[in-house]
């Protein structure tokens, strides 16, 4: 066995190292990438990779749940509540809150994506277009959620409404009934729904899909490197998911 082969770890219990090498042809012509692939494939336990830090009292603080974008508590509370209505906890498993979706959204809005850094932003903006960037749309939208809630329910904030009341308000946003400035409430709702689903199912490295619980719920195996061992399986094969953070570099 060559050094190369020795360094390629076992991909999965069901995919032997030998069959992986044979199938991929890495030793035939792929030596250029063998080393790098080898290290990428070296799965390590997810449990050791969560973002934790220890203070002097040995208390575990999860710094990934510190906000970068939302400053006002009321704004954040509204988005927390709204995402949970969009993707609620149920018998299948966790909802948006337990999956870390609000923190995922916070990070996304603070990132260059939140400022539409890669989009074409030159004017003029014509009818049906918004000059606002994504973080501006979401911020205006969550404030509007509270504004509508307080107006319709005697000063009650969105987070304190019943689920039924929250659904009714979100529906009015979805159908574009709520007046917003320079953007439609339907566009805001659509963005919020998109962000919520992304936060449920993106790789955990972005702060959502906590402990891969979103993937586990859908039985999605995550960032696997190969499925050649399962091509002939007629029955469903449940594979323990792996995230990019679970790859060893």
């Amino acid at each position: 066995m060559s050094e190369q082969e020795k360094n390629i770890p076992i991909l999965d219990k069901r995919t032997s190292r030998r069959s992986f090498i044979k199938n991929s042809g890495l030793t035939v012509g792929g030596l250029v990438i063998g080393g790098a692939i080898g290290s990428l494939l070296n799965g390590k336990s997810e449990a050791t990779t969560s973002t934790v830090a220890h203070d002097t009292n040995q208390t575990v603080i999860d710094y990934s749940e510190t906000r970068q974008f939302f400053v006002r508590q009321k704004d954040f509370d509204a988005i927390v509540a709204a995402t949970e209505v969009i993707y609620p906890e149920d018998k299948n498993g966790p909802g948006a809150i337990a999956l870390g979706v609000p923190y995922f959204i916070d990070k996304q809005l603070a990132s260059p994506w939140g400022s539409n850094a890669d989009d074409y932003r030159k004017g003029p903006f014509k009818a049906g277009e918004t000059p606002l960037n994504k973080s501006e749309i979401v911020l205006q939208g969550v404030r509007k959620l509270n504004e509508v809630a307080e107006k319709e329910h005697d000063g009650t904030l969105f987070k304190d409404l019943t689920e039924e009341q929250q659904i009714a308000i979100l529906t009015s946003f979805q159908v574009g009934e709520v007046e917003m400035e320079l953007v439609s409430s339907a566009a805001f709702f659509s963005l919020l729904r998109t962000l919520t689903l992304q936060g449920c199912f993106a790789d955990p490295l972005y702060g959502g899909n906590k402990n891969m619980a979103g993937w586990k719920m859908k039985e999605f195996p995550g960032a696997q490197m190969s499925y050649t061992a399962y091509l002939d399986k007629e029955e469903f094969v449940a594979i323990e998911p792996v995230s990019l953070g679970g790859h060893k570099h």
Binding site: N23, G25, G30, I33, A223, S226, Y227, T228
Partner: peptide
């Protein structure tokens, strides 16, 4: 090299070549 059916394909580059 041989395809691994990993599904990260269209919109992705292939690290296996």
């Amino acid at each position: 090299n041989a395809c691994q059916y990993c599904a990260f394909c269209g919109n992705y580059g292939c690290e296996y070549g």
